[in-house]
């Protein structure tokens, strides 16, 4: 009887723990999650880095302003059950798709060099390969977008001029 009691307790905690993991506060996920593995020396943190709650059924669009003559690194991170992350870069003015990470097996970090200023829409969804059907419909996790930047080197600017 005691074993059955212990199993009930165990089952209760196993049901509760994943829910807690999924429903944490998300505001600073881009500073805490896997994104921090992509921090690069020589790059500054871009203030448009952002985190939000996401489920496997949702789509988030980040409208970001990129200034010209700068290199950027975009890094995406989420809860382990929500990977891989699918993102598409869209020209905010024309709606043209400039890049889709599906073509690179859902890579999670991408370098971008902007010769001129440009507003982009970064459309993101979580494919959630490791989630069960129930988790896909019920669970919410954090999605972090870390953006780092640095100025183009003077040499490169001169070459362009």
């Amino acid at each position: 009887m005691k074993l059955i009691g212990n199993i009930y307790v165990l089952a209760f905690f196993l049901l509760i723990i994943p829910g807690q993991l999924f429903s944490q506060n998300c505001e600073t996920h881009h500073l805490e999650g896997d994104c921090q593995h992509d921090l690069q020396k020589g790059y500054d943190f871009y203030s448009q880095s952002h985190s939000a709650k996401i489920s496997a059924l949702d789509t988030i669009e980040f409208n970001v302003v990129f200034y010209g003559q700068k290199d950027y690194i975009l890094s995406f991170c989420t809860h382990k059950n929500l990977y891989p992350i699918h993102f598409v870069l869209i020209d905010q003015q024309t709606g043209e798709v400039l890049y889709d990470n599906e073509e690179d097996k859902y890579l999670e970090s991408l370098g971008l060099g902007f010769d001129v200023a440009k507003p982009l829409t970064i459309r993101v969804d979580a494919i959630a390969r490791l989630s069960t059907d129930e988790e896909i419909t019920d669970k919410i996790g954090c999605l972090g977008l870390l953006i780092q930047y640095k100025n183009y080197s003077r040499k490169r600017v001169q070459l362009q001029l």
């Binding site: 448009q48 952002h50 939000a52 489920s55 496997a56 059924l57 949702d58 789509t59 988030i60 669009e61 980040f62 409208n63 970001v64 302003v65 990977y83 891989p84 097996k105 859902y106 890579l107 494919i127 959630a128 390969r129 059907d133 896909i136 419909t137």
Partner: peptide
């Protein structure tokens, strides 16, 4: 990275809500 082939099917299941959130940054 592995493709999920039935993603569209899951999204279209009746009664399942999905959200499209737009975040404007500057």
């Amino acid at each position: 990275p592995v493709l999920i082939e039935d993603l569209d099917e899951l999204s279209s299941n009746a009664g399942i809500k999905s959200f499209n959130q737009i975040i404007h940054l500057y």
